[in-house]
Amino acid sequence: MNNGPKKNLGANFDPIDRILSADEQLVPSSGFVSSVMERVREQAAAPPPIPFPWKRMLPGFGLAVGVFGWGAFELVRYLPQAIRHASFAAPHLPVFASRDLTQAGWVALACVLALLSWWFSSRLTQHSRIL
């Protein structure tokens, strides 16, 4: 390491400038160049990364777009009719059905809580850089 400022700053200079510009100079170790070149040669010799299989993905992607497009088209086609014929009065449900609905509510609540807990824990691990 070499010490000393590279610029000769007088005592009148801002002390922060004077001190921080006088930082020591490191000389890289003797094996530095060879270790960098070794890593470079390793990477150069490594096979190129496998390209993303766009050709294989395209049919599946096309199918998915078709299915969702068809779904959206059907929804748009039947939604106005469904709204027109919908009655907003509460349907009369038998007792066993309403009990099932209550249970479904609890299941939904549990799902939401599980989702929140997963989101919260993943946020925590991100912030603490555990993973």
Binding site: Q25, L26, P28, F32, V33, V36, R39, V40, Q43
Partner: peptide, 27 residues
């Protein structure tokens, strides 16, 4: 190598780590 190691040194003030960081930068 010199400027990059010295620049890394100013970021971390750890000689070994500075060399590793400079290596990463060069690669």
């Amino acid at each position: 190598q010199g400027p990059l190691v010295n620049m890394a040194w100013r970021y971390c003030r750890d000689r070994n780590r500075a060399e590793e960081m400079a290596q990463d930068a060069l690669v």
